[in-house]
């Protein structure tokens, strides 16, 4: 009996060892390598791994482009998560009403997820193209806007950053309480980012819908029935029974979407790159340009390490939480 367990264990270790070795080398090994590079002197194409210290990070945090990138990431994350979760939950609730053609709609909404962000980016770049001002020819969505007598929008080429003006009443009020620094584009919302949010939401909201739909189907009908028997109307059923029971799904959705939005690169690279005045610049794109245009590998590694840390701050508590709930079961 004992021998059999040992043999089982031996085979199981043998079977997973290739993936353990490969992941140790190509994931954790290269993370360690990147951390080392981020503290090194490597500028230019020839690796120079002599130790420089925290200077790469000091320079990064004093770089105005990086400040804008952090603003953009926050704006993108907030809008993208709100839109995806709002839309995904709405679609899931609608489809959960046992409508006709449910399978069709479920596949329809889920399908954009099968497309890569690069493809989404290229398609939405065309759809949201501002048109050619030289000829006045409109393209994409702007044609639709024109048909309903709305002015064409500049979409991802719009340099506007909506922010509190320092001269406005609110700006002066903030200044009087020592918060005048908020009246600055750095604490604003870049309009161009909305276009990226639209494309990302188109792609990911179906996935959130599928998660919520699974969650909704997991709620026993008896619970809803019981609530109805107690005199709850449909709104109250959702408010007090369904939504609280969907909380774990929301948490998973936030984690999954959140780590996508912190790392987003391909969609931005395909759609608008840095954008006017860095309106759509994100840390990952900054990292790409620093490393492969400016050949500043040490600085590029510092940006990637910063991104790794932010994603870890999101993922690690979640992993701890989910392993605890697993062990409780």
């Amino acid at each position: 009996m004992l021998r059999k367990i040992n043999r089982d264990r031996f085979y199981s270790i043998l079977l997973i060892s290739p993936s353990i070795i490969l992941i140790a080398l190509f994931v954790y090994g290269f993370i360690a390598w990147s951390i080392w590079v981020s503290f090194s002197n490597w500028e230019g194409l020839r690796p120079d791994l002599t130790f420089r210290g925290v200077q790469n990070f000091v320079r990064l945090f004093s770089n105005p482009r990086f400040h804008i990138d952090i603003r953009n990431t926050i704006v993108f994350t907030v809008f993208f998560l709100t839109a995806c979760i709002g839309l995904g939950l709405t679609l899931a609730v609608v489809i959960d009403q046992r409508i006709r053609g449910e399978n069709f709609f479920r596949s329809l909404f889920l399908f954009p997820m099968a497309v890569s962000f690069i493809v989404t980016g290229v398609v939405w770049r065309w759809m949201l193209a501002p048109g050619d001002p030289a000829t006045g020819r409109l393209t994409g969505v702007n044609i639709l806007l024109d048909k309903i007598n709305l002015p064409p929008l500049k979409w991802y080429t719009d340099p506007t950053v909506i922010h509190i003006s320092a001269n406005s009443q609110l700006g002066q009020l903030l200044d009087s309480v020592g918060l005048g620094f908020i009246a600055n584009p750095l604490y604003g919302i870049p309009v161009a980012m909305i276009s990226i949010v639209i494309a990302a939401t188109w792609q990911m909201s179906g996935f959130v819908m599928a998660m919520y739909l699974a969650g909704l189907r997991g709620i026993p009908e008896e619970l809803r029935e019981a609530a109805r028997v107690d005199g709850a109307n449909e709104g109250q059923v959702y408010r007090h029974i369904v939504l609280p029971m969907l909380r774990p799904v929301t948490l998973s959705a936030v984690i999954i979407l959140g780590h996508i939005s912190l790392k987003i690169f391909d969609l931005v690279a395909a759609m608008s790159k840095r954008g006017p005045g860095f309106a759509t610049d994100v840390p990952a794109y900054f990292m790409f340009e620093t490393t492969f245009h400016a050949n500043n590998f040490a600085q590029g590694a510092a940006i990637s390490i910063f991104m790794l840390v932010t994603v870890s701050l999101l993922i690690i508590p979640y992993l701890i939480y989910s392993s605890r709930t697993d062990s409780e079961i």
């Binding site: 006017p276 860095f278 620093t290």
Partner: peptide
């Protein structure tokens, strides 16, 4: 060198939208 051109490109990206001479010169 390209590393410097990239940094100047960054300064220009901000400058052509905010036209802030002092911050561009510092950059």
């Amino acid at each position: 060198p390209e590393s410097w051109v990239a940094l100047i490109n960054d300064v220009m990206t901000s400058f052509v939208t905010n036209l802030n001479v002092a911050s561009a010169q510092a950059g």
